[in-house]
Design a protein around this nucleic acid. Structure first.
Lengths: 195, 195
DNA sequence: GTCTATAGTAAGATAGAC
DNA sequence: GTCTATCTTACTATAGAC
């Protein structure tokens, strides 16, 4: 079925979001212009406004989609069982998921400042939800006597910070593959909460 | 001694750097205009160019000063002795120093993307130097059999990421004081590298 | 050292043709 | 749905007076 020339609503939308995510990750939200995004997509700047009401909403939707993907993926992957098994699953999941979406992780952390207040609140709520998933595991393990953790909430933030840090140095073509990285970090995580 | 009206070279320079640091931390380098910085200082935008050749150099000098302060402060504070004692000192130093300069820490990490290539290289070298300080402690402990660490370089980045994460949640007027925070993190650090 | 004024450029967003 | 053209605003940086 032939289309009107230049009509690509079904593919341009995703391409706008992909280009915006890559550019925001590389240069920062404030440093990227709508014209730059349009150039990467291959359209004129005005056409972008068929896909977002404004630049701010484009950023917010990228961050919201990422955080909701993260939560949904963990809730699908999370095993039942003892706290130690659940903590290992969380550790490996977090490393795998985050390294596979480095741009989205980077933008979702770095651009919090550039969200309008109501958008900031929404993203912070999602982030807090994710942290609570880990906190619950740590609390369960502490209650069962498997872990020695004075402050589960702080420990969850400490571990997430450590695991997310993988993104700052990991390269898929580097010396260590992802399985080795997971093993190294799981060893540190396991010991850090050990009795 | 009366001054020419409006002449304040000895105090305006530091105030420009203070205002720029606070504004860059709050809104991001690209989102802050020279006019905003000037307004915070109480001068007109043109006057800022008595203190920096351009906006880029202003950012670079803030980051360079921070990284050099960090290195110098640790080199003054670092104890001799066994690896375990040196690791505890590093842990407590890193938390104390970084929480006392949250804006500079934030800017020095978040605005790396906005550095010109040669400036980026210089800051990365300083960061790498600091990471190497911790890496040396971990290697010494591993060699002495005090620590069990498969990859000292990766462990050093993991620990620094964890410790720097304190800045994302710590508030001086919060429930926990800094000594308690240090104790919680030291407990996790100590165990994470334990044999 | 600071001011006012401005050159030169680029931004976000919209209007209307096709 | 995309284009061209444009409105309006704001930016960095500089020039020259005081």
């Amino acid at each position: 079925m032939a289309r009107t020339q230049g009509s690509h609503s079904d593919i341009t939308g995703p391409r706008v979001r992909e280009a915006a995510l890559a550019l925001f990750a590389q240069h920062g939200f404030a440093a990227v212009s709508m014209r730059q995004i349009a150039r990467a997509v291959g359209v004129q700047a005005g056409a972008l406004y068929n896909y977002t009401p404004d630049k701010q909403t484009l950023l917010y939707e990228l961050m919201r989609a990422h955080m909701e993907d993260l939560l949904a993926a963990w809730d699908r992957a999370a095993p039942a069982g003892a706290a130690l098994e659940r903590l290992e699953a969380f550790t490996r999941f977090h490393i795998r998921f985050n390294t596979s979406r480095a741009d989205a992780v980077f933008v979702s952390y770095m651009e919090l400042r550039n969200l309008a207040p109501e958008n900031f609140k929404a993203i912070e709520r999602l982030r807090r939800e994710y942290e609570t998933r880990l906190e619950s595991i740590l609390r369960a393990g502490a209650d069962a006597g498997s872990f020695a953790i004075a402050e589960p909430r702080i420990a969850s933030m400490a571990l997430i910070a450590m695991l997310t840090g993988v993104n700052t140095w990991f390269r898929a073509d580097g010396r260590l593959d992802l399985a080795s990285v997971e093993a190294i970090y799981w060893d540190m995580v396991r010991k850090s909460v050990a009795v």
